[in-house]
Nucleic acid binder design. Sequence first.
DNA 1: TTAAATAGTTAGAATAGACTAACAAATATA
DNA 2: TATATTTGTTAGTCTATTCTAACTATTTAA
Lengths: 215, 215
Amino acid sequence: MNSQSIENYLKVIFNQAITTDEVNTTGIAQALEVSLPSVNSMVKKLAGMGFLEYEKYRPLKITEKGRQMAAMIIRKHRLTEMYLVEKMGFGWEEVHDIAEQLEHVQSPLFFDRMDELLGYPQRDPHGSPIPNKKGHIATLEYRMLADCQPGEKVVLKALGHTSDAFLKYLNSKSLALGVEVEVIAVEVYDRNMTVVYDGHREVLSSLVCSKLLVS
Amino acid sequence: MNSQSIENYLKVIFNQAITTDEVNTTGIAQALEVSLPSVNSMVKKLAGMGFLEYEKYRPLKITEKGRQMAAMIIRKHRLTEMYLVEKMGFGWEEVHDIAEQLEHVQSPLFFDRMDELLGYPQRDPHGSPIPNKKGHIATLEYRMLADCQPGEKVVLKALGHTSDAFLKYLNSKSLALGVEVEVIAVEVYDRNMTVVYDGHREVLSSLVCSKLLVS
DNA sequence: TTAAATAGTTAGAATAGACTAACAAATATA
DNA sequence: TATATTTGTTAGTCTATTCTAACTATTTAA
């Protein structure tokens, strides 16, 4: 079995491959909060295991095998988050740290049972897709709220960021997935948006609006 | 935080302290399937951390701090087993390996929530007591079925052993906690017992009967 | 297009936890 | 009690993962 350390590297590399398209050593080091040399040696090891293609001074390429492995870890993570929210009553801002630990549990049965009890969900509590058992990940076709025009009515579907602070901010504004949001105005100067939803009228910064994915 | 390795040692030492009253290096080595020198060095480390009292060539003594720590790990293990059986539909023979991994999860909230959803159970699916949050463990006053006399009617309350093989054997005989068992006869020669329960009539070996705890 | 800045690499060391080989103490047995 | 057996210990090694210090390649910018 792969160590937790290996799994964490794979997960980070996979995520960077999606979000940045160019995976580099420094990015991994920052995400995992380890030193560059640590990443360098682990990357060589992962390459040796067939999870990556590595050439000195070149950006990393994740292999199909690596992609597959990472997808399974992410599947466990997201299923866990969904389970914690849906079946155990946790808030979406509470589940990350627990899922971070449970994702390393070695027991296909355990996660399959979660999946079954949840009714085979497609998304985790933050709207991110849950990879299926084959490692396939449904592509999401959401727009950023930041790209919407005044007058548009859209529904909040997912988050582009899931830090504790951001989730708590959204809680404080009663913003949850499924909420229908109407764009009232966009400030030309700083792109702040005035929006209305659920009896609320709020001004959201462009930073926030770029993290709210809607359709 | 203590490593998983440390937690596993503590758990084993605690269990041996209960069942054998004399904790020694060899017993730990066998339980954990590691070498004697590995145990020796870990024991010194645990002593240094205040979990044990260690003197060369003397049996080990667990300290109150060690007892407390171990109880919390066992609490997590047993709550998890109960949760898996009660809320996720697993069989009592399926839960040990999963609980063995979940017991290392660092999240009091997670286990408190399990506890709450289960209605603060006193026992795990095998009838073993679940330590409370203070580390207190309810003492069980059960007898072994092996000590019962012909004609006695008793209820199966707990198991003195919970190996996979034993649990599967019990499943094959439809023996579950709560079943009322009547002792029909005891063979003098080998102490095999003929018992009747739930429409079954079975002959149980003395080995099995010594692992069935009743009241 | 060369210098400065950034990114990546190597070498070497530290720690945790495991091991084997060799030895010493304690216990059981003849 | 002397010896054999069991149990526990020490010394030294190995692997995984991390680190710092020193260095090299690549990229950016003057």
